[in-house]
């Protein structure tokens, strides 16, 4: 029994049941296939496949259980990404992006400050002059606005 796969299968089934209930809100349609037709068919197949997967799983050995090798780095990275999103509009793209890049490179153990800072600055400047100034991509300015 592979525990990880089982958890994923159960999650899929729970989500399927939830979405199936949601399809009852879809309006009636006078025609061959309504808006709920295809989603329901897919949900049935999804549940069936997951049940098969669970059935097959019974005889499998959990020889290499799924584990995250350096959980703290994934957690820190996730936090960094969430922070980037949270500050994207208020601080502005051109402030958060270099900070994010520098922090991410630190996290990935790049220990060459000149390289780290020049990569972050060059990336941001290229985006600023090419995408923001020239192509008018409406990136949020935040503090700089």
């Amino acid at each position: 029994m592979k525990k990880g796969t089982l958890v994923i299968n159960v999650l899929f089934i729970v989500a399927s049941v939830f979405l199936f209930i949601e399809t009852f809100k879809f309006p009636y349609f006078k025609g061959p296939v309504g808006p709920a037709g295809m989603p329901r068919l897919l949900i049935f197949i999804l549940v069936a496949l997951n049940l098969i997967s669970i059935w097959q799983n019974r005889s499998l050995k959990d020889d290499k259980p799924v584990k995250i090798e350096s959980p703290w780095r994934i957690i820190a990275g996730t936090a960094l990404i969430l922070l980037y999103l949270a500050l994207f509009n208020s601080l502005g793209y051109f402030v958060v992006t270099p900070l994010f890049l520098i922090a991410m490179m630190f996290l990935m153990q790049v220990r060459r400050p000149v390289m780290v800072i020049s990569v972050a600055v060059i990336f941001t400047l290229v985006v600023y002059f090419f995408f923001y100034k020239e192509l008018m991509l409406p990136l949020p300015l935040g503090l700089l606005g």
Partner: peptide, 29 residues
């Protein structure tokens, strides 16, 4: 380039590209 630099750049370009589709943060999310 060190893998750390490449990874940071992947994130950087991915954020920019996703924002560039409809100019909204929702696509980044």
């Amino acid at each position: 380039l060190p893998i750390g630099v490449l990874t940071a750049l992947i994130f950087g370009f991915a954020f920019l590209g996703a924002f560039g589709v409809r100019y909204t943060l929702i696509d980044v999310i």
